[in-house]
Design a protein around this nucleic acid. Structure first.
Lengths: 193, 193
DNA sequence: ACAAAGTTAGTTTATATTCACTAACTTGCA
DNA sequence: TGCAAGTTAGTGAATATAAACTAACTTTGT
């Protein structure tokens, strides 16, 4: 599906976004970092938007995997949320560049194709998380004095802000370790009793 | 301090950021929207960064007001958090453009002056919220089985994500009304017992 | 030998900023 | 009081830089 060079372009593009933000992803920087000329990149991608779309696809696929596998497994809702957190933390720890993508909604405004793809991912994830919580409420694991929607906003909001703080710190603390602690707190917050 | 024209430039700049994102804030768009020539803007601001700094200052001041007034008032911690939420919602309802600024960290990367100002605001707010929560824990209003830090991440994370959802919806629901409901849920989550 | 992947040298478009100049005012003082 | 001098806010034209992308040629590996 994807050639080696295409993969390399995507990897380096992600790195650039991570280091300097979307403004840092220029064809010039990209080619310099890879070690080929600018036009050479056009042998592998039609244009810059296709590169960004490929990045978003990558992101969507790895996110979809995390979310959908959880939804249909036989474990408890609490465990599902636990897995959701830890898998995300693992993913970000292995590939911090993805964090920039997760917060990139603002950056893609004006590019309908990119915005649409971002919106898709966000909607899908939100609805799956809400489903998981509802299910947990039905079988008595998760408190039902608060609506599943609100709990989902809280859970997802905590996760997002925590990741953002990690990014802002320059990745100075261990997202897996400290994230695990936050997860414990979130579990206590949403559990029944 | 600020002339009428400077205020107008700031207002229009905010509007542009809100409508088309930061990419939409060009000197050309700005001048067209105001109805003067591009160079005329330079009679009022040294350069574009100074305009953005002025916007961030505005944002910082109105945020500082909200946070600091709460901290030193005599009301309970829960009420303080309540005020914090509702004041924010009011502010955003009156001036949706500010929402774009609150999520603009990613866009200002590469401009040290802007990044620094953003970081300042975020740090300050986080520390004040944590203080408020600690105080609530000490006088038994707020649960103390979870650290103030984690509760702060949850409260702030929920608020942020909710505002983001509102923005994404195209401001289609009432942030004051629905935000009030979310607030009720958050209060239940963090209260003692 | 030929197609894929590369290069050099451009083009076009956009953007922030500067330049030289002007019309309309305000101010200081003979 | 009246006018010379200065200030303010504007203009159109030009400049510098950077971006994405293209045309035409060359190299390289099977």
């Amino acid at each position: 599906m994807k050639t080696e060079r295409q993969q390399e372009i995507i990897d380096v593009a992600l790195m650039l976004i991570n280091e300097k933000g979307i403004q840092g992803l220029t064809m010039k920087n990209l080619s310099r970092e890879i070690g080929i000329s600018e036009p050479a990149i056009y042998r592998h991608f039609e244009n810059k938007i296709q590169i960004l779309l490929a990045i978003l696809d990558l992101f969507r696929e790895s996110t979809r995997e995390i979310f959908e596998k959880e939804l249909h497994s036989g474990i408890s809702a609490t465990e599902k949320i636990e897995h959701l957190f830890t898998r995300h933390f693992e993913r970000f720890a292995n590939n911090p560049s993805l964090v920039s993508v997760i917060f990139s909604e603002e950056l893609f405004r004006g590019e309908p194709l990119l915005m649409q793809k971002i919106a898709e991912v966000i909607d899908k994830n939100a609805s799956i998380l809400t489903q998981i919580i509802q299910q947990g409420q039905q079988n008595g694991e998760i408190r039902d004095d608060i609506s599943a929607d609100h709990l989902a906003v809280t859970v997802m909001g905590s996760l997002r802000l925590f990741v953002k703080i990690w990014q802002f710190s320059g990745y100075r603390f261990s997202i897996k370790e400290d994230g695990g602690k936050l997860l414990t707190s979130v579990k206590i917050l949403i559990q029944k009793n």
